[in-house]
Design a binder for these strands. Structure first.
Length: 968
RNA sequence: GCCGCCAUGGCGGAAUUGGUAGACGCGCUGGAUUCAAAAUCCAGUUCCUUCGGGAGUGUGGGUUCGAUUCCCACUGGCGGUACCA
């Protein structure tokens, strides 16, 4: 038997496939363990070495649990709906289902190459009608429910209708878009359309006109988490706020439960913090201010009701309809000018400039506690979406209000004396109240309570909790997604498509382009018009399918239900969920929402979908950039050229084919950088240096079409390279470099297939685990993989002689050998539980080194290590298991447990420290008493040397640990 | 700004409830083997040193017999978020 990793990979991957080694049955007497990876979006560029980090970690756990006697569910599938496939279709004319099928097959192949133990029979694909039938069904159920805030759960719409018919809105305590006041009588008298519109105020999936993130370039609306810095996360296109008619999910109804549930799950602190921030709970009071000369009131939300005596003006969001009503004729022009200014400003402007702007409406509000008359302004810094869209401004205790007051010359009344708290900032809730009537002298927390009570007693407001989280916009005007299962009937009332008629599949189309806000589905006229009415043409966002996929794996082929009760009662929830931190907020939060909704419907037995979550660290790669400069020629002409990053501005240059002159760097941005391929990494003075060599460029230009085309594009931007010569006289450009996420566009992605082909899957798996803690970000570097390969080779050589024949003896193991074995068993067992895979690998290395040194080839020692290494190196382990005569697959063999009696030491080597500094070590019997150890240490001549001429103040002996002499 | 995470040799990283800092691997140095190279094996490798020893885990302080570990302040890096009242 030769150590031929490629042959081993092929042999055993075929074996596992043929024998369905990783098939999982649902009914069994074993305890269950569910290990899940976040399923990928199958993009055209395939997996890079960053993806498998998590897959390998979860695979190790899955395999270990399987051996330890659990029934393990370890599935993989594809999040196949989404924008890129559709963009690709628009660019190339290839139907998204075709490109998706190709990419999916490639991903699966790559995963099989890595030796991952997925049960592919349970695979799901969100774009498969058999799958999205149930996505549509679940969202349909959301549509058919409302949220009862008293019972704190979702209830069927039919029950809401009963309530409304009997008591009207006064009998309803519900999560709602806006408070309504409708009597039972009015409700009973409503027509179908009117009723439907009313119910939309309560449905958990509802359609409403609201300000949404509109992305013109993508032709669709986007959710808040798909927008970064006023631009679309995908494609980096500008995004604007537009009022549009859209479907949303009422996630705000679940805000409190989503927050509370975080205490019951094992997620990292950072991830919990992100979710908490996203939900953004704040406790305060809703306060009603009268408006002078108007019947209506101005409601504001504040977390600092204690500072109400410091209110010197009010601010409302420019978008509110109230603005028009309040504006006095004298201020009309000023307000209109300001509104026009706000309308001109994009999201990006608003974020980047952060200017103090606003305008006075001419109206005044009356402070309910001291009857003070305060002016009402409008200003951009007050957001229409948060709270009531209006604030009471307290310039003494709010940074933004202060800046505004200073700019507009408004009074500032100090109401909180912070002199007892030096260093406290304006927003800290610390200090003693002054100039505040009955609150004077109170500390802030006490004053908040007192002010809130007074406001409530006077009937001028009430306690309120506000959440930053917004309802989730769940419409996309795109083709490649699940159609909303809704048909508008003759009265224009949205009707849910009955379960028997699901799935609503996409019509065949050739052109997927979205035209100014209209879904491409609008053009599929045959599809839209049904006997029962007109179909909804919005599709669902990509999160729709991934919200619940972990449930489908439990029962993937069930034609009658999204998951059977039997399956979900057995598998319950995900024990370990592994995936990238980039999904920390959106995906996790939304699937928790759907899970809680399904819990309310009694469809799942658990309150949380994921018990434990592990975010693997990102593997970055060096991105090399070539710098674009300008050659200012002697004749005054300016020629763009590529220059080295080490060439300073003003350097004289003589570039063949361009001319002589000086280097000028691009005025606008200093230097323009372009990521580049064909980079050579060299070492100069012990520092690594990234260079683009002229010979590499020339070779690329002469090689295949793609590479040549690449440099044609590069040379279109600047016609020449300003080469420098290295020590050997070869022309090159020095490149600047930064670590970044692996990406095809940055030319820093490394393909795992290449590594597997060279070193074998086992070596690749162990190397990725050996890089460091799985949750830490790290740069990819291939240096060091040889060390892991050498280790695997040495491990193999414990079993196999130089003649490539199995060479294992039946001799009895020595005490020393048993100790090596059981130390290893203990360490690896513990470290897998801690998800500390890197230290497992070193433990294997240590044990292999020791067994090699001991010349141990005994079956009694080696055989258990095969079962132990199986989760890490499944191919090599399978081969050795078979060679040793093991029956069946090693992956179904028992997990070897450490036995403590082999770990007991006869003696312990004590570190002997003086004043805490270790100076020497001494051996004492393992059972030696404190006194024996101290006496023994004092008797030692070396110790006496250290104690010579000093007085011993104290001796600390911790048996089995250390000895410390405190001397003076 | 705010929230979270991180900081240890030339590099990736290890170190149990505070108890021998630098495991394991890379790289480097020397040696064996070889006609030679690759591969493999062996030894050494935190820094300074007058070879006695001394210093040392981002910086400064604290608690302790003893701190990489706990506490306080700061610096730097990564990720998230941002006019959230």
């Amino acid at each position: 038997m030769k150590f031929d990793v490629q042959a081993l990979d092929r042999k055993w991957q075929r074996y596992w496939k043929e024998h369905k080694t990783y098939r999982t049955a649902t009914t069994t007497g074993k305890p269950k363990y569910y290990v899940l990876d976040m399923f990928p979006y199958p993009s055209g560029s395939g997996l890079h070495v960053g993806h498998p980090l998590g897959y390998i970690g979860s695979d190790i756990v899955a395999r270990q649990k399987r051996q330890a006697g659990y029934n393990v569910l370890h599935p993989m599938g594809f999040d196949a709906f989404g924008l890129p496939a559709e963009q690709y279709a628009i660019d190339t004319g290839v139907h998204p289902s075709e490109s998706t099928a190709v990419n999916t097959a490639r991903y699966r192949e790559q995963m099989e190459t890595l030796g991952l133990s997925f049960d592919w029979d349970r695979s799901v694909n969100t774009s498969d009608p058999d799958y999205f039938k149930w996505t549509q069904w679940i969202i349909g159920q959301v549509f058919e429910h409302w949220y009862d805030t008293e019972q704190d759960r979702a209830r069927p719409i039919a029950e809401l209708i009963d309530l409304l018919e009997q008591e009207g809105t006064s009998g309803v305590r519900a999560a709602e878009t806006e408070p309504l006041d409708v009597t039972a009588e009015d409700f009973r008298g409503m027509g179908p359309k009117e009723r439907s519109d009313l119910l939309m105020n309560y449905r958990l999936a509802f359609r409403s006109v609201s300000y949404v993130n509109w992305c013109e370039a993508l032709g669709t609306v986007l959710a808040n988490d798909e927008v970064k810095d006023g631009r679309s996360e995908r494609g980096n296109h500008p995004v604007e706020q537009r009022p549009m008619l859209q479907w949303s999910l009422r996630i705000t109804a679940y805000a409190e439960r989503l927050l509370a549930g975080l205490d019951t799950v094992d997620y990292s602190e950072g991830l919990k913090a992100q979710q908490v921030n996203w939900i953004g709970k704040s406790t305060g009071a809703l306060v009603h201010f009268d408006i002078e000369g108007h019947d209506r009131q101005l409601d504001v939300f504040t977390t600092r009701p204690d500072t109400i005596f410091g209110t010197t003006f009010m601010v409302i969001a420019p978008e509110l309809e109230l603005v028009d009503e309040l504006t006095t004729p004298a201020q009309r022009q000023e307000i209109d000018d300001y509104l026009a200014y706000v309308g001109r400003r994009s999201e990006v402007d608003r974020m980047s400039e952060n200017k103090v702007t606003g305008a006075f409406t001419g109206a005044y509000a009356i402070n309910p506690l001291n009857e003070a008359r305060v002016p009402i302004y409008i200003a951009e810094y007050v957001l229409k979406d948060y709270g009531t869209g209006a604030i009471m401004a307290v310039p003494s205790d709010d940074e933004r209000d202060k800046r505004f007051a200073q700019k507009f010359g408004i009074d500032i009344i100090e109401v909180v004396d912070k002199t007892d708290y030096p260093g406290a900032s304006l927003k800290d809730k610390l200090g003693k109240l002054i100039n505040s009537g009955f609150l004077d002298g109170m500390e802030v927390p006490e004053a908040i309570e007192a002010a809130t009570q007074r406001i409530e007693t006077l009937g001028r407001g009430e306690r309120q909790i506000n959440y930053r989280i917004r309802d989730l916009v769940f419409s996309r005007q795109r083709y490649w997604g699940e159609p909303w299962p809704i048909v508008y009937d003759a009265d224009d009332v949205p009707q849910l498509v009955p379960t028997e008629e699901l799935p609503v599949t996409l019509p065949e189309m050739d052109d997927f382009r979205a035209v100014s806000g209209a879904s491409p589905l609008e053009r599929a006229t045959d599809w839209i018009n049904t006997p029962s009415g007109r179909r909804e043409t919005d599709t669902m966002p990509a999160t729709a399918g991934s919200n619940w996929y972990y449930l489908r794996y439990m029962d993937p082929h069930n034609p009658g239900e999204f998951v059977s009760k039997e399956a979900v009662d057995y598998w319950r929830d995900v024990d370990l969920y592994v995936g990238g931190a980039e999904h920390a907020v959106s995906h996790i939060l939304y699937s928790r929402l759907i899970h809680k909704f399904l819990f309310d419907l009694d469809k799942v037995p658990t309150r949380e979908p994921y018990k434990k979550l592990l975010n693997q660290g990102m593997i970055g790669g060096p991105i090399s950039y070539v710098h674009l400069g300008v050659l200012l020629a002697d004749d005054g002409q300016r020629h763009p050229i590529w220059v080295g990053s080490d060439v300073a501005e003003g350097t004289p240059l003589d570039v063949p084919g361009v001319g002589k002159g000086y280097l000028v760097l691009d005025e606008s941005s200093g230097t323009r950088l372009t990521p580049i391929r064909f980079v050579t990494e060299t070492s100069v003075n012990n520092e690594s240096s990234f260079r683009l060599y002229k010979h590499a460029v020339e070779e690329a230009q002469q090689s295949d079409q793609q590479d040549a085309a690449y440099f044609r594009t590069i040379l279109q931007q600047a016609g020449a390279f300003a080469w420098t010569l290295d020590k050997e006289g070869r022309p090159y450009l020095e490149l600047s470099v930064e670590q970044g996420k692996m990406s095809k566009r940055k030319y820093n992605a490394v393909n795992p297939d290449d590594i597997c082909a060279r070193y074998g899957a086992d070596c690749f798996r162990m190397y990725e685990m050996f890089l460091g803690p799985i949750d830490q970000a790290k740069p990819w570097s291939v240096s060091g993989i040889d060390g892991v390969y050498r280790f695997l080779r040495r491990y193999w050589n414990l079993f196999v002689g130089n003649d490539d024949q199995l060479n294992v003896s039946e001799g009895e193991a020595t005490k020393e050998e048993l100790k090596v074995l059981h130390t290893l068993l203990k360490k690896v067992g513990e470290d897998i539980d801690k998800l500390s895979f890197n230290t497992c690998i070193s433990a294997f290395m240590v044990a292999t080194n020791e067994l090699t040194k001991l010349g141990c080839n005994k079956r009694a020692i080696l055989e258990p290590t095969v079962r132990l290494i199986a989760p890490f190196a499944p191919h090599v382990a399978e081969e050795l298991h078979a060679a040793l005569g093991g029956s069946g697959s090693v992956h179904h063999a028992n997990w070897p447990e450490a036995v403590d009696k082999y770990l007991v030491e006869d003696s312990f080597t004590y570190p002997i420290a003086f004043n805490g500094k270790t100076r020497l070590t001494l051996d004492f019997p393992a059972g030696a008493s404190r006194e024996d150890v101290e006496a023994g240490a004092r008797a030692d001549t070396q110790v006496q040397g250290y104690l010579d001429g000093k007085s011993v103040r104290k001796v600390i002996v911790v048996p089995g640990r250390m000895v410390n002499f405190v001397v003076a």
